[in-house]
Simulated scan of single mutants.
Amino acid sequence: MYSINAATKVANINGKGLTYRIIGEGDPIILCQRFRGNLDDWDPLFLDLLAENYQVIIFNYSGMASSTGPLNTDMKTFSQDVIDLADYLAIDRFVLGGWSFGGFIAQVVAVNYPARVKQLILIGTKPPGQVNHAMEEIFLKTAYIENYTVEDEMILFFEPISESSRQAAKESHDRIAARTEKDVRVKPEHWQYYGSGSEDFTKDAINARQKLMETTIPILVLSGDHEVCFPPENWFDLNRKMPTLQTVVFPRAGHGPQHQHPEMATSYIHTFLANTIQ
């Protein structure tokens, strides 16, 4: 798998050094990472399958993991990392994706810089503002364990009651572990900064929820039917309100459907991107 050996590069921008990797060629897709995630925490098979048709770009937020610079404290500064990296790479318009917390950032970028975002891919995340369906307590308890086991990953990202999902968790874990040149982990003392960003997203001072109801940017949401963090029902509440929204729900799947079903997830993404060009 090409992504396992992809070189880690540094974009030095305005006092911060954003570490990033590029896999594949074609139209660019920038992916925003989840809570605590670093460059290694994307499933390599998911990235490689996307890279068969696109130039896939993953990165670390300022000050997180191997990136240097000031830590972000709100959605504005987190989302600025995306624009800064795109500018550094001389990418004018791009497909933007985000997983979990990264989905918050992707949505904020889309409403603040609509001319830059061609299409939006949101995985295991929620819409801006207040939502009606909360995360499960077991997610909060497990998400703050410093060193995950495979069993913890099954709770966080898969569906523990499903034998096939548990097996997929082991396979995804092994694919991620296969990389020999490891990225730096996000320090526990930095986890609080995701909370600041999440609070900002929920308060929705920039009225992102309403702007997404008026957007022309095509939006694809991928979710599991047992999403312990951000239930897909929050997106169902926006049916017929968000005009460009498409939601795909994977059965017997959790918070990381792209890791459980990398082939199917990338197939949905490719079909969506090929058929929703603005």
Rank of each mutant, 00 (worst) to 15 (best):
I4W: 00
A7M: 12
A7Y: 03
A11C: 08
I13N: 12
G15I: 11
D27W: 00
I29V: 14
R36P: 02
N38Q: 03
D40W: 01
D40S: 01
D43E: 03
L45A: 07
L47S: 05
D48A: 11
E52T: 15
N53K: 12
Q55D: 05
I58K: 04
T68V: 04
L71K: 08
M75I: 04
K76L: 14
K76F: 12
K76G: 05
K76E: 14
T77M: 06
F78C: 09
Q80T: 13
Q80D: 15
D81F: 01
A86P: 11
L96N: 12
G97E: 06
G98P: 05
S100P: 08
G102P: 05
A106K: 00
V108N: 15
V109A: 07
V111N: 02
Y113G: 11
V117M: 00
K118Q: 08
I123R: 01
G124F: 00
P127I: 01
V131I: 15
N132A: 12
M135P: 13
E137W: 09
E137F: 13
I138A: 14
Y144D: 01
N147M: 10
E151D: 15
D152E: 12
D152W: 01
F157W: 03
E159C: 09
E159K: 10
S162L: 10
S165N: 04
R166F: 02
Q167N: 15
A169L: 07
H173K: 11
K182A: 05
R185G: 07
K187E: 08
P188D: 00
H190T: 05
G195A: 04
S196L: 13
G197P: 05
D200T: 04
D200Y: 01
A208L: 03
A208T: 05
M213N: 13
T215K: 06
T216F: 12
I219Q: 08
L220A: 14
L222Y: 13
G224M: 07
E227V: 08
F230S: 11
P232N: 06
F236C: 03
L238A: 03
M242D: 01
P243I: 12
Q246G: 10
Q246E: 15
T247Q: 13
V249P: 03
F250K: 02
A253E: 04
A253M: 09
H259T: 00
Q260D: 06
H261I: 01
P262Q: 06
S267F: 08
I269M: 07
H270D: 13
T271E: 08
F272N: 11
A274R: 15
T276W: 09
Q278K: 14
